[in-house]
């Protein structure tokens, strides 16, 4: 079980893997996530499902190296097996026929909006996708997104590809021009999701964000992932991961994301000392 059947390096620090997990593939729906462990002494990390193939029993994950666990995961090769892989977790995206919708993806969030965009398009929506990254090489899954949506916009911070600027600039223009936009999905770094919500607020368009909290079990048992949503505490793992972005207490959310920063850095540094004396791939996002 949990064999890596296909591995692809999308960028120096971004990888895609298809994992054999037939039962998860059988039940998964767009918007859900999985939790994996690289090895027995590893930690449990949540990753939103980037794609799935029910017939072949496969789940696709896309991740960026941001610490020890993701770096270790990136060193596994096709044929290797993960120690643990559970899912599908969380609630599925609410896919309906809304009319016109926009899906916004930043960084590895691009991978997360992929199955959601596709399902929305299949449900008969006009799906406008906006994907963005710092620079051209970090734009991933462009072809898949083009396929999954009706229109695709690409932005880069440095202008090396597509429009120069942020995803939210394109989003603002779209909201200005097209008053029929019913819903916006935004998945990416916390700051990007927060700015998306600020962008859509004046237009009163429903905006869903998918939160990537720190988790342990992922099934509602520990509460590590709790967030404040309109004054009420919610668990990302069982009440989410998608929430109405206008209700999220973003400051608290970002504080809680940094809870283990020091320990994570210590662990990563030690890993490098022991395994990998050079510093390639050791960039921060």
């Amino acid at each position: 079980m949990y064999q890596i059947v296909q591995k692809e390096k999308l960028h120096e620090i971004i990888y895609s893997m298809w994992i054999e997990a037939p039962q998860v593939a059988q039940s998964v729906q767009p918007g859900q996530f999985i939790i994996l462990m690289v090895k027995e002494k590893g930690e449990r990390i949540p990753l939103t499902v980037a794609d799935f193939d029910r017939e072949k029993g496969l789940i696709r994950i896309v991740f960026q190296i941001v610490g020890k666990t993701t770096e270790e995961l990136s060193t596994l090769e096709e044929g290797d097996r993960l120690f643990s892989f559970i899912g599908p977790l969380g609630r599925k995206s609410e896919i309906e026929h809304y009319g016109t919708v926009v899906t916004v993806g930043g960084g590895t969030g691009i991978a997360c909006i992929h199955p959601i965009s596709r399902a929305l398009k299949e449900a008969g929506n006009k799906v406008i996708s906006i994907i963005g990254a710092r620079t051209k090489e970090l734009i991933i899954m462009e072809e898949e997104l083009r396929e999954a949506s009706s229109y695709l916009w690409i932005t880069t911070d440095d202008g090396s590809y597509g429009r120069q600027g942020f995803v939210t600039q394109v989003l603002k223009e779209l909201l200005e021009q097209d008053k029929t936009i019913k819903k916006v999905w935004s998945i990416g770094p916390a700051i990007m999701m927060r700015v998306t919500c600020e962008t859509t607020r004046p237009y009163a368009v429903d905006t869903l964000v998918s939160l990537n909290s720190v988790m342990v079990d992922g099934t509602g048992m520990c509460g590590s992932c709790r967030v404040t949503m309109g004054g009420e505490t919610k668990f990302v793992c069982t009440d989410g991961p998608e929430f109405d972005g206008q209700l999220v207490d973003w400051i608290e959310f970002m504080h809680r994301l940094s809870r283990y920063q020091e320990a994570e850095k210590r662990s990563w540094d030690l890993y490098h000392e022991l395994n990998h004396p050079c510093t390639c791939g050791r960039r921060t996002n």
Binding site: K41, G42, E43, V216, R259, A263, L270
Partner: peptide, 14 residues
């Protein structure tokens, strides 16, 4: 997760 044996085990605890 055996965070008491961090960093031998990867899960941290504060």
């Amino acid at each position: 997760m055996k965070a008491y044996a961090f960093p031998e085990y990867d899960t941290p605890i504060k």
